[in-house]
Amino acid sequence: MTDAASDTTELDPTTLLSGTEPLFLVMNSASGSLDGHETRSTIERVLSESGKSYELMQVNTGSQLVETARRAVDLAREQSGIVVAVGGDGTLNAVANEVLGKDVPMGILPQGTFNYFGRMYGIPQDTEAALACLLDAVIRPVDVGLLNSHVFLVNASIGLYPQLLEDRETYKRRYGRSRPVALWSALVTLMRAHRSLHLQIDLEGKPRRDVHTPALVVDNNALQLKHMGIDRVGDIERHHLVAMTSRSRGTLALYGLLIRGLLSRLGDAENVESFSFDTMTVQPRRGRARMKVAMDGEITRMSAPLEFRISPDKLPLLVPRDPAMEEHP
């Protein structure tokens, strides 16, 4: 977690927020666990009662999200306002990509299944509670990860994990969004055969070694690491990213890793290796000019090599005034 004392010297929230800033809310009705009508009604009621100036910019498909987020950033810059992302992890990610480096504060009303990013900074998932925090917030500059210049807030990955996410979305569309559905889809995915990746990993510009692994995950969230049982929370607090690889290839071994992860004992698994870094470059040894990657639950394809690093720009995030609300790892 970012050090609050040093951050406030970079960006003093008491001088940046007057309380009169208009809010430009980008709401993805197709995102996360949103009940679009109920969430919109709550936002309109709470903000109207508070007398806050706002514009709710609602989208119904992911394809509209980036363009709408850019428009919200432009309006916020013109009117000294704040951009607020309303939705799951993918929505927060898309809006953060547009906000980063634009000198515009960002708030979130998180609606994702696990809400690791919001919980890390004390932002509740309940919409009305999150709005109450937003209306009495301070700015905290926080670290975000970059994968080839694309922002990720929680994690980015290649290999098995993107496939798990693709299958999970299929099951969620069919059976609804819940943690049991997510677990069942993961078990079904692991039953299939998986190709191991052969990767060359360079750390801080120096060759490290070749790696054979079914998955590579890079994490920027100390709370998620703690819940997986990976003892590298201090590395995140020191502004590093944490990478995890697995040497397990068989289905039974992968089942074992999944169970350990659910029991927060992944760090005890002898087939799991974790390490922290500032900059890491990943290059496939064979073929794969473009690789399937997942960032905060959203899947895309990117050209190799893949470079992971902490962004030199921090994200000016609106967080609750009371630091006791943070969920410490």
Rank of each mutant, 00 (worst) to 15 (best):
R285Q: 03
E307L: 01
S264E: 04
P329N: 08
T279Y: 13
I158N: 14
L241K: 15
R195N: 07
Y121F: 15
A269Q: 10
V99E: 02
L56Q: 09
R309V: 05
R179L: 02
S246E: 11
P214G: 07
L266I: 10
K206C: 11
G36K: 09
A186H: 02
V233L: 03
A72K: 14
L147A: 09
R77P: 01
M280C: 12
L146Q: 10
D3Q: 09
L197K: 06
S6D: 07
P105D: 04
S276A: 15
D210Q: 03
E10K: 13
R45F: 02
M291W: 14
S6Y: 12
N97C: 13
P305L: 00
L263T: 06
R260V: 03
H194T: 03
L257I: 01
E327P: 04
V86P: 08
I139P: 00
F152E: 08
K172L: 05
A289G: 10
T61P: 06
R247V: 06
D313E: 04
A76Q: 04
A294L: 10
R232T: 13
R238P: 04
D103P: 02
D89Q: 08
Y171T: 01
G297W: 07
L315G: 11
S149A: 08
T91H: 07
I299A: 03
R70I: 01
S264H: 15
A193R: 09
V66P: 10
Q64I: 04
R168K: 13
A253F: 08
P124L: 04
L165Q: 05
R265P: 05
D219K: 09
H239T: 12
P320A: 02
L183R: 04
T14R: 14
V142K: 08
T113M: 11
E237I: 04
L252E: 08
I43K: 13
V73D: 02
A69D: 09
Q125M: 11
A130S: 06
T300A: 14
D322L: 11
G229Y: 14
M57H: 09
H239E: 14
G51C: 05
L203Y: 11
P323H: 07
R45G: 00
V66T: 14
D143P: 12
L183W: 09
G205M: 11
L164R: 08
D126R: 05
G87V: 06
Y175G: 11
P305I: 00
H239I: 03
F275M: 04
V66F: 11
E55Q: 15
L317N: 13
R45K: 07
T213Q: 06
P105C: 03
F152S: 12
G90F: 06
V104S: 06
